[in-house]
Design a protein around this nucleic acid. Sequence first.
DNA 1: CGAATACTTCACCATATGGCAAACTATCAA
DNA 2: TTGATAGTTTGCCATATGGTGAAGTATTCG
Lengths: 112, 112
Amino acid sequence: MANYQNNPIDRTFAALADPTRRYVLQRLMDEPDLSVSDLARPLSLKLPGLMKHLDVLSDAGLIRRTKTGRTVQVRLAAEPMQQAMEWLNQYQRFWSASLDQLTAFVEAQEEP
Amino acid sequence: MANYQNNPIDRTFAALADPTRRYVLQRLMDEPDLSVSDLARPLSLKLPGLMKHLDVLSDAGLIRRTKTGRTVQVRLAAEPMQQAMEWLNQYQRFWSASLDQLTAFVEAQEEP
DNA sequence: CGAATACTTCACCATATGGCAAACTATCAA
DNA sequence: TTGATAGTTTGCCATATGGTGAAGTATTCG
């Protein structure tokens, strides 16, 4: 093989390509600082499985883990998504309809 | 293992996770309807290697291939990126600085 | 027709990924 | 201090991915 996701944007997109990992990210949006077992509870995989996903997310810089006592708090660190977003932005001229959607979305965000 | 990218958004992000494939997409933005060998020429891989990448991109719905005679035209089909984009949009509230950037970008696009 | 061109398919390889059970390492509670 | 709890590490496995060379299929050119 060769290179295997070693640049940041590769790792970001690769991390986002798995539904379990996207689920983790979405949960962390709503409930910050969840523990590893809190995250695992609703999932149908064992802890070692989740660990691997968390490693992928950490390597991509999308989460940060801090251990206090015996529990680990997992927190979102969405910075790398910005790059991913910027990369995708280039393609907007190929779907102007959705450009309108995006504009609406951004405007909605700007309102109080 | 399990599920291996079988839903559309998985396939989209997985397709975007490789630099060769992102290169192909970017070239197709600038020069639509390139042939397979045109795409391969500047790359340091053999045709079968590129073929696999094109298969991944097709399966993700990001390109479309049409054969005329013995040459194949590859065209961008960026629709699935919209979904990817929308997914990423959720995270904007985690980086408001770049939200401003995005707003600027969208506004720039809207000007003639 | 015969040969070159433009892909495509096949068989093969090394490494990655996503999952598990089992064993291990804290840390907190009784 | 024993035991439960929270997480990690270590094999191990099956399948995926990204690459190759070699052979196969059309199509076009001379």
